[in-house]
Design a protein around this nucleic acid. Structure first.
Length: 429
DNA sequence: GTCTACATCTGTC
DNA sequence: CTAACGGACAGATGTAGAC
């Protein structure tokens, strides 16, 4: 047994579904294959997922839909409203499959996860079997990037996607050194995980344009100018693994639910309805996470894209005993709304953020807390969660959340809930 | 001044 | 017919009041 066997260099794989939302839609409607397709954000606001054909038309990530309409009509672009229930369900299927293909998995986002391939012999072949398996069992196309750090695995995944020569799997560990160096010199820094538009611009000023430039730049200078995060990124690019695989995701610091309104809100009742509904959603998320909050941040603002009087307010409502109870949380949230409300503005968006979050199991019972009342409320919340799960979200809602819902979002091109609702499945007769 | 809590801004995916 | 631009996070920075 050698030292390397005892302390093998880590190997990370990053598996990522291609054009995830569009690909989900295509699984259930193959007529969309080969066509330019985009999926729009909530409120049919902007393009958040694009098929390769749509990308080829020059449609950019985040482009507002109303600016795309002409182009879309001209080229027969299919635009779909987002269907998060469907995507969440498909995500679960993919992640469950992938969890079985490695000893350890970190679910990084709805459409990507890291796998620990440390000690695997033929990673390239294994990457292909991952691809095959996901395609076979879910219908979704994925690409796999493999390397010795998470940042490099992300980059390898980028190569697997953009460069057809890799056939969907890129293992940096398998590339000849010359090819690898040439490859890095051919990729723009903005492709690196954590280097976005702003950072790229600032790096360009320093003459750092390619991934290779960044990797070979002076660490001390970068640290002084951009902080520890960028420094860590550079170390990772050099093959020094600084980011561990995080199997269990940490308790999140905040749970946010916020939406833009279909119609602007001008009365406090409207804002209260919307905020009640968001609070109920966020509270359900707390319960499903097994956590509680000790404070709620309530915020609302006007439409910053519009040339009208602007306002943006927020307030933190704190309370002594942490809770996950929808009713209590709604009461606190309503206090917040009263605090921030100012007459005479047209509000476009509002939200709540559950804050100061702690795990539910280990919280001390307060002196003023009646354990029987608490248990009763827990059962009521649980019942509400079950009904909403079983019969669809919104089956049971608080009266305070309103019946009219002028503020609710627009969603004109939604695909059916293929995986969760029989009654929306198209049936051949 | 400087500590703190809260508000606001920035950046990324 | 016209107007119309997401959401969820983390982390940095700004600011007003208490001392």
């Amino acid at each position: 047994m050698t030292n390397r066997d005892l302390h093998p260099k880590p190997v990370f794989a990053l598996v990522d579904v291609n054009n995830f939302y569009v690909s989900c839609e295509r699984v259930f409607d193959p007529r969309l294959l080969g066509k330019p397709v985009i999926v729009l954000s909530n409120n049919d606001g902007c393009a958040v997922s694009r098929s390769n054909e749509a990308k080829a038309l020059g449609i950019k990530m985040g482009a507002p839909w109303f600016q795309l309409k002409d182009l879309a009509r001209q080229h027969g672009v299919v635009a779909l409203s987002s269907n998060y229930t469907l995507y969440g369900d498909m995500s679960r299927r993919v992640m469950t499959l992938l969890a079985d293909m490695a000893p350890r998995q970190e679910i990084y986002s709805i459409d990507e996860c890291f796998l620990d391939l440390t000690g695997s012999r033929d990673c390239l072949t294994y990457g292909q079997s991952i691809r095959y398996r996901v395609r076979r069992w879910t219908g979704l196309p994925v690409c796999v990037g493999i390397a010795s750090t998470k940042t490099l695995a992300k980059l390898a995944n980028h190569c697997a996607k953009k460069r057809p020569g890799f056939d969907g799997v890129c293992d940096f560990g398998d590339l000849p050194v010359d090819d690898y160096e040439r490859l890095l010199a051919d990729i723009h820094v903005s492709a690196v995980w954590g280097i976005g538009r702003k950072l790229s611009e600032r790096l360009a000023v320093m003459g750092i344009d390619t991934v290779r430039d960044l990797r070979d730049a002076d660490t001390a200078t970068l640290r002084a100018r951009f902080g520890v995060v960028v420094e860590r990124t550079v170390r990772e690019l050099r093959g020094e693994s600084c980011l561990e695989l995080e199997e269990l995701q940490a308790v999140r610091q905040g749970v946010t639910t916020s939406r833009s309104f279909g119609e602007e809100v001008t009365r406090i009742e409207g804002l209260k309805e919307a905020v009640s509904s968001y609070t109920a959603t966020a509270a359900a998320k707390l319960r499903s996470d097994g956590t509680e909050a000790s404070a709620i941040l309530v915020f609302a603002h006007t439409n910053p894209f519009k040339n009208t009087p602007q306002i943006s307010r927020q307030t933190l409502v704190s309370f002594a005993t942490p809770t996950d109870d929808t009713f209590a949380l709604c009461r606190y949230a309503m206090q917040g709304v009263s605090r921030i409300w100012v007459d005479g503005y047209r509000y476009k968006k509002a939200g709540v953020m559950m804050s100061q979050i702690t795990p539910k199991n280990r919280h001390q019972a307060s002196l003023f807390e009646n354990p029987f009342e608490t248990a009763k409320r827990d059962r009521l919340n649980t019942t509400m969660d079950r009904l909403n799960l079983r019969y669809g979200r919104g089956t049971l809602a608080l009266a305070g959340a309103g019946i009219q819902k002028d503020w609710k979002l627009k969603s004109e091109h939604r695909s059916p809930a293929y995986t969760t609702r029989w009654d929306e499945l198209p049936v051949a007769r």
